[in-house]
Each structure stands twice: as structure tokens, then as C-alpha cells.
Write a protein that binds this DNA or RNA. Sequence first.
DNA 1: GTCTATATACCGATAGAC
DNA 2: GTCTATCGGTATATAGAC
Lengths: 197, 197
Amino acid sequence: MNSTARSESVSAGSGTKTAIRDAAVKLFDAKGFEQTSLREVADAVGITKASLYYHYPSKLDLLVAIINPIIEHMRAVTEDIKTVPFGPEGVRTILQRYIRGMLRNRDAGALCVRDTVAILNAMADRYPDLFEFGRQLGDWLAGPDPSPEQKLRASAALHVLEVALLSSEVAPEANEALIETTLLDAATCVLTACGTR
Amino acid sequence: MNSTARSESVSAGSGTKTAIRDAAVKLFDAKGFEQTSLREVADAVGITKASLYYHYPSKLDLLVAIINPIIEHMRAVTEDIKTVPFGPEGVRTILQRYIRGMLRNRDAGALCVRDTVAILNAMADRYPDLFEFGRQLGDWLAGPDPSPEQKLRASAALHVLEVALLSSEVAPEANEALIETTLLDAATCVLTACGTR
DNA sequence: GTCTATATACCGATAGAC
DNA sequence: GTCTATCGGTATATAGAC
């Protein structure tokens, strides 16, 4: 346990730096981004606030380091919808890519959902098009020249997939395959108006 | 326009007091509860911070005045599930009551969804059982002795209904009847696994 | 790379005049 | 009922020793 940089988990980097990130994720998720002070994060790691600033130049940079995977995934899916043709199998392809990316970054995603306003406003300067990603995806899902009902269904389908981020709380026994299958089925069902009406 | 207490809108009360509430709803929704200062609210109304404290004894009391209708509605539905028998028509009854209450208080509801963590933590002391309402409703919807898939579907169904709170943004042309019908159909569809799988 | 100490700013809330 | 002025607390971020 001596020498330099032994990896302690899957996503180890420089040691203290990833310890800061992990502690911040936990605290941001529990208390919210703005309501969590860097002193609390530093205390959880066992260092001081000044040392934290050595690894991350600002509180915003710490947040970006956490949710960057989510942003890049949203950007990638938003790019995909420009090439994938709209239709039943195209929709399923997009929805599958979307939910898999969220399952891959579950903790950071849960943070975004439960603290939407604060995070969106904090990132607005650095990522001005972040808000557009969700809207563009919704527009594509609603199809060409959509009715109000289709718009509602598209938005509802995306909200169904967001349950994946809360799945460890809702159904801890479910594995990723079951979550993906169930929510993907539910979302396509929402989109295609297959109800009992 | 002289004398005392002329009602200016549907929910008029003492004049300044409701003006504060309305300004606060708008600002809390745009910036988040904790990130909005009482100085900003006071400025929007055209009074000072000290005058605001004459009408509301604390920032938390202002928040409670805004989202109290939502809380009471959640409490009422949570009471309903103890008497309504579980089954297809019972589920539809509960879901309908749930979505109608959210449509009735759309602005306050949107605030709760987009600023969940901050609001939940702020209200935790005064309303300790607030978090339980959503969980109990999810448990009832999942049915007796639910499988992981049923738990996921119940949670997803509730998330579908939450789209009602964002409907003025997603589909401004849709009236309340269309919103209710569409989302109610989508939610029951999510629950009953009627997909194309 | 981690520390102590501090600069600067804003917050919620209160006191008291009018 | 609205105001000015202020208290006490905490926040982000920085300076500089080690």
C-alpha cells in the first residue's frame, strides 16, 4: 500500500482527485449542488477546502467533471437523430441508446434529474446548448408535424426512461437487462397509443 | 379601485401578499428555491426585503404558502388509496384524481419537480412525511407482492403523469381535457404491459 | 500537495423610525 | 405597512508558508 497511485476502484485516477469526485456526487445528490458547500466535500474526503481547489479550479469545474459523461451522451444521441430515419425501429434504436447511456452513468444522471434547475443554471454559461438536447430529442420522438397528443406522448416516453436513474431506489433487485427491457417496452407503449381507451 | 381588498384575479387575497407569492413562484421556478434571494423577490414586487418579512415570517413560510395545495392534494390521494380497492378501475380512479390535482396547481407542481432536492430538504422539518406520499402511492400502484418489473412500471406511470406539469411548455396548444386523457391512457398502458415486446 | 488565514460578498432575519 | 440600517453567519475563492 505504499508508492504511487494504486487504483482503489474501477474509475481511479490520481487518488485524491477521484476521492473528491466520489464524495461530491454523494453530497450533491443528497443535498443539491448549490446547497452543498466545498467545506463539506473537503471534510468528507479528509482534506481542507484549499487543497480541494488545487485539484479543481472552481466548484463549477467539479460539477462538470461529474456530469460530463451525461452531457457527452446527450450530445451523441442528439447527433444520432440526424442520421437515424424516423420510424418504429428507428425510435427503438434511439431509445435504447438513450437509456443505456443513462444506466452507464446512473449516479450523475440521478443528480441531474433531482436538481434540474440548479444544475441547468450553473452550466448555462459553459454549455449553452445543454437545454436544447432534451428538446430536440423530444421533437424527433414526436415525429414530423406532430399533434399536441404526440408531443405529450414523446415527452412522457422520455420521462419513463428517466426512471432508470432511480431504479436502485425503486427496485434494487432489478438488474440492468430487466430495467432496460421493461422501460423500453413501457416507453414505446406510451409513444404508440396502445392503451385501453 | 379605492377602498379595501378588491380582488384582482381568481386567487387574490391581501394585494401585496399575493403579489409576493406570484413573484416568488416565477423566480423559484426559474432559479430554484435556495438560489433565489428574498431581495430578488422583493425587487420584483417593488418593495424591500423588510416589508416582505411583514407578510411572511420566513423564507420557508413563503415556500409553504406556494406548495401547500400540492402537499394537501398528495395527502388526500394517499388517504384515498387506503379505501379504494386495487384493480383496473381503482387504479384509473386514483390516477385520475392524482393528475387532476396536479393540473389544478400546475405552477407549484412544476417547481417541485424541477427543484426536488432543495424543496424536499427545506420542508423536511415541517413536513416529515412528505417524502412518504410518493413512495406509498408507488407501492399501491405496483400492486400486492409486486415483482421488480411491476415496481418499475408503477414508478414510470407516475412519471408519465408528471408531464402534465410541463405541458404548457411541451404542448401549449393542448387543453386540460386532452392532457388528462392522453397521459391517463399512457400511464395505464405503462402499468399493464401492453407493449409490442 | 496540503495547510492556516483571510479577502470579499451575499444571505436570512431583526430593530426601530415613520 | 414600508422603510433604512445592521447583525451574525456562511459562501467561494485566494495568498502564502511548509
